[in-house]
Every structure is written in structure tokens, then in C-alpha cells.
């Protein structure tokens, strides 16, 4: 499922959620981010039961971008048990993203 981060507290969302998280740092003005939309949709369907995707608009969440040291978008970060696992910066192929997700799912399942 894709959850756009609105006013919720991201920390609380991480704590409540037991699945690995894919944090997608993006902005509406960013072309490579727009190009990733169909890829993210595809991944959200494929991994619906295994991963939670959180879309973080950096225009609205500058604090989170700073906290995660995001200086370029799109940036994709997987979080396992609340900790950063891997990150990918820039436009990605579905294959690259899937590799990162599978690693996070395997890690989460111990």
C-alpha cells in the first residue's frame, strides 16, 4: 500500500508498522520522481502484503529530508525495524528497487 505522509508523525508510523518500510522522498516538481510513479505503483501491488510504502513530499517535510540527510530526489530508503537498511538515489529501474526491497524483507524476517 502507498501511504502519502500527511500530518502523521513518521516516527510513530515506523514504530506502529512491523513490516519493512520503503520511504520515497519526492516532490511534485521533480521529473525523475514523476517517472518513478508507475514503477512505485507496480511495486506496491506486487509487494502489497510485505512492505509499506510511504511517500514523503520534501516540500512539506523538510525536517525529514534533513533528518535522513536527503539532498537529492528521488531518494528511496528502506527501513527495517525502524533502522535505515539501504538507500538508492535517483531514477531507478524496477529491478534495482526490487533487489533493495527483497533484501529488506529478508532482513525483517530474520
Amino acid at each position: 500500500m502507498i501511504t502519502p505522509l500527511n500530518n502523521q508523525d513518521f516516527e510513530a508510523l515506523i514504530k506502529e508498522n512491523h513490516q519493512p518500510i520503503l520511504a520515497d522522498f519526492w516532490a511534485p516538481w521533480c521529473r525523475p520522481c514523476q517517472m518513478m510513479l508507475p514503477v512505485i505503483d507496480q511495486i506496491a501491488t506486487e509487494y502489497a502484503d510485505q512492505i509499506k510504502i510511504v511517500k514523503i513530499d520534501i516540500g512539506e517535510h523538510e525536517d525529514l529530508a534533513e533528518k535522513f540527510n536527503v539532498l537529492s530526489i528521488p531518494t528511496f530508503i528502506t527501513l527495517v525495524h525502524g533502522q535505515e537498511d539501504q538507500r538508492l538515489i535517483g531514477q531507478q529501474t524496477p529491478q534495482n528497487l526490487k533487489k533493495m526491497l527483497i533484501a529488506a524483507i529478508e532482513k525483517a524476517n530474520g
Binding site: 521529473r31 525523475p32 520522481c33 520534501i58 539532498l71 537529492s72 538515489i89 535517483g90
Partner: peptide, 16 residues
């Protein structure tokens, strides 16, 4: 340094 201060897209990353 890509995404750590180096960028090829000002429209994407200028805001940082």
C-alpha cells in the same frame, strides 16, 4: 557524492 551534495538536476535538488 551523488545525492550527497552533487547533483545533475537543479530543478529537482535546488530546494535542498
Amino acid at each position: 557524492f551523488l545525492g550527497r551534495g552533487l547533483s545533475y538536476c537543479a530543478l529537482c535538488d535546488g530546494q535542498f
